[in-house]
Design a protein around this nucleic acid. Structure first.
Lengths: 248, 248
DNA sequence: CATCCAAATTGATTCATATCAAAACCGTAC
DNA sequence: GTACGGTTTTGATATGAATCAATTTGGATG
């Protein structure tokens, strides 16, 4: 691969968290301006994956966590029986791989849902650095704990909610994540296939499809393929709530 | 920090991780003999809770994580609608509260399932200490990551498995946790009510009850109330697996 | 020992969602 | 433009577990 020139500012391998537009979501969020250099020292930036490519694979040696820079990532675990369970979707600014910090190998597989660029944080260096920067350490605890909570939320959704409620919840979650990135919270394109949604939410694809059309008929959303428009956010919120079930 | 001499025994308030029989499961697992003192310095030991008492409550200020010393703890989250989702059961040697390390308040409620004694680790001090002891920090990452994985496993169970499979999985999980404590893996008493099992596994109590009797009729277990005996562990393992579903 | 209340079991019925089957749609390649 | 494979949608049917209802058990209390 003969290198193109890529002049830019000198070292193309060195990250520039300083200038990253996601620095208010990602790890830099936690640290002082002057400590940013140290983070930049350990991060390997700019790896690109095409749709469908693996960022890491379950059971291979665990080396790094990855921050999504652009694109989207799905993580899943595979049972011995070969069944897949999608465990999460990750959008720009979010950190993938936290579930693997307990062992020698990745506990899940991460796959690019579309052309995706990530920043890589080798764990050893990351741990070393968090030992030195209390704020960064705190942030790691924060992120991991958040991840536990997300997962609990998911469990809750799976065990207590109807198909409609689950899908409403997912749409709203995506919506707020788009919003955080200053993109439209009501008009976006789903990074994942119906199949992934179904798997993630513990439903059959057919059910997902049906709920989408039902929502559409009720005028709550407008959906064409992966393009989604939330027409009535309130209704969606109502749809997630137990309030619906409370009959209040 | 003027150090007292602390002649060994003496101070009853001071923890003695050194002598704790669970030190090979709990936080001491991670650290050198000589650093144990520092852990003992921050831990408040020996708090006792009676069955049904709260160790901490959701939405109250987050102060500490707790290691179970004896007894058993259940954690759950409550929705705005008042619905409960049991998120975990914790046995001696396990650390409760990791899901709350992200905010100012507890993300869940922890309740003693029976008379339970815990060791309390104030977060501030814990974070300070993990900043100094890389092995301890690593262990925290390990535990939190484990917690994420557990939660993913649960999600998998909830979305992909039948009632029988879920219950088989729970029984085996408990079994191995008893075994780790050098107790009988086939003959133990469930710390939680059927109701909690049902809630945790996303089932109705009636279903749990039915599955228990079904297993009993098949000669896989013997159950009288909370007393359980695993008669055919292999069959249970088969019951959890997808292999059952694969028709291999 | 009798009483009481919560927990657990058992049975009958209902329902949401899976499953099976087929058609429509869409992007891509030729 | 046409043909292809995979994704999505739509319809008909089957089913596992929830719900409703009633009974039994068991542990606590006086």
């Amino acid at each position: 691969m003969a290198q193109v020139i890529r002049i830019k500012q000198a070292s193309p391998l060195k990250a520039s968290c300083h200038k990253c537009s996601l620095s208010n979501l990602c790890l830099p969020l936690a640290i002082e301006e002057n400590d940013l250099d140290r983070l930049e020292d350990i991060v390997q930036q700019g790896r690109i994956f095409n749709r469908g490519e693996h960022i890491f694979e379950q059971s291979t040696p665990f080396r790094s966590c990855f921050a999504v820079r652009s694109g989207a990532v799905k993580t899943s675990i595979i049972t011995e029986g070969g069944e897949e369970q999608v465990t999460g979707f990750f959008m720009p600014g979010e950190l993938v791989g936290l579930d693997s910090m307990s062992g020698e190998s990745y506990a899940s597989t991460a796959k690019a849902l579309e052309r995706t660029s990530v920043c890589e944080f080798p764990v050893e260096k990351l741990e070393e650095l968090t030992g030195k920067l209390p704020d960064l350490q705190h942030h790691m605890y924060h992120l991991m704990s958040q991840e536990i909570q997300n997962s609990h939320q998911l469990a809750m959704l799976l065990s207590k909610n109807t198909a409609e409620e689950r899908i409403a919840a997912l749409l709203l979650s995506l919506s707020s994540r788009f919003q955080r990135r200053r993109m439209s919270p009501t008009n976006f394109s789903l990074p994942m296939a119906r199949n992934d949604i179904a798997n993630f939410l513990g439903l059959a694809v057919e059910t997902v499809s049906r709920v989408f059309t039902r929502f559409q008929n009720q005028g709550i959303i407008r959906a064409r393929g992966r393009e989604v428009e939330l027409l009535d956010v309130e209704a969606l919120q109502l749809a997630t709530r137990d309030s619906a079930r409370q009959g209040g």
